[in-house]
C-alpha cells in the first residue's frame, strides 16, 4: 500500500507492506538506524520514537497506522538544538555506556521534558520506566537528563 508520513520534518511517500513495523521501515527503507531493535515486543524501549508528539515503541506499530503521521527519530532530534543539548549532556554525565539503549533514552527524555521541563528524580524514573538499560543502573542517565534540563533551560 502507499502511505505518506513526515519523518524528521521531511514528507516521505512509501509503498509498503501495511503490516511492516515502523521500526523496520525506518531502519531498512529510510536508513535511519539510530532506532534500535532490542526485543521486538515493546519491553525495552530501544526502538523509541515520537509519533505525533507521543513516545512510542516503533516495533509495535504497523506502518499502515503511520499514514498521515509525524515521526521524530533520534536522527531528527539530535540535529535540533534540544537534541544537541541532550546528547552533549549525556556524554558529559556519562549517561552512555554501550550506547544501544541511548537513542531511545534520549527520545524518552525529550518526551518527558516536553511535559515537565524541570523534572525531579522520581519524575525522570517514571518517564523512563519503559526504557531498559543494562549498563548504567540508570543513575547517570538521570544525571544526564537533569544536566540537560539545566543547560537547556528555556528550550522545553
Amino acid at each position: 500500500m502507499k502511505i505518506e508520513m513526515t519523518v524528521n520534518g521531511e514528507l516521505r511517500k512509501l509503498d509498503v507492506n501495511p503490516l511492516s513495523r515502523l521500526l523496520d521501515i525506518l531502519r531498512n527503507d529510510l536508513s535511519l538506524t539510530g532506532t534500535k531493535e532490542g526485543c521486538g515486543e515493546g519491553e525495552c524501549g530501544a526502538c523509541s520514537a515520537l509519533m505525533n508528539g507521543l513516545l512510542v515503541n516503533t516495533c509495535l506499530i504497523p506502518i499502515a497506522q503511520c499514514d498521515g503521521s509525524e515521526i521524530l527519530t533520534i536522527e531528527g532530534l539530535a540535529s535540533s538544538k534540544r537534541g544537541e543539548v541532550l546528547t552533549e549532556a549525556f556524554a558529559e554525565a556519562h549517561s552512555v555506556q554501550c550506547g544501544f539503549c541511548t537513542p531511545g533514552m534520549v527520545l524518552a527524555a525529550e518526551s518527558l521534558l516536553r511535559k515537565t521541563p524541570k523534572p525531579d528524580e522520581q519524575q525522570i524514573r517514571e518517564g523512563l520506566a519503559g526504557n531498559i538499560c543494562r549498563c548504567t543502573g540508570y543513575d547517570m542517565i538521570i544525571d544526564g537528563i537533569q544536566l540537560a534540563a539545566e543547560k537547556g533551560d528555556g528550550l522545553w
Binding site: 531502519r27 536508513s31 535511519l32 538506524t33 539510530g34 532506532t35 534500535k36 531493535e37 527519530t73 533520534i74 536522527e75 539530535a78 537534541g83 541532550l86 546528547t87 552533549e88 549525556f90 556524554a91 558529559e92 556519562h94 549517561s95 552512555v96 554501550c98 550506547g99 544501544f100 541511548t102 537513542p103 533514552m105 534520549v106
Partner: peptide, 23 residues
Amino acid sequence: SSIPRPDGKAKASGLAKYIGDHD
C-alpha cells in the same frame, strides 16, 4: 577527574554503527 565520554555523543545521536546498522 572525569572527561566527557568521547564515544558518548555519537552513540546518543544514533550515529554509532552496531553490526545490525551496517548496510
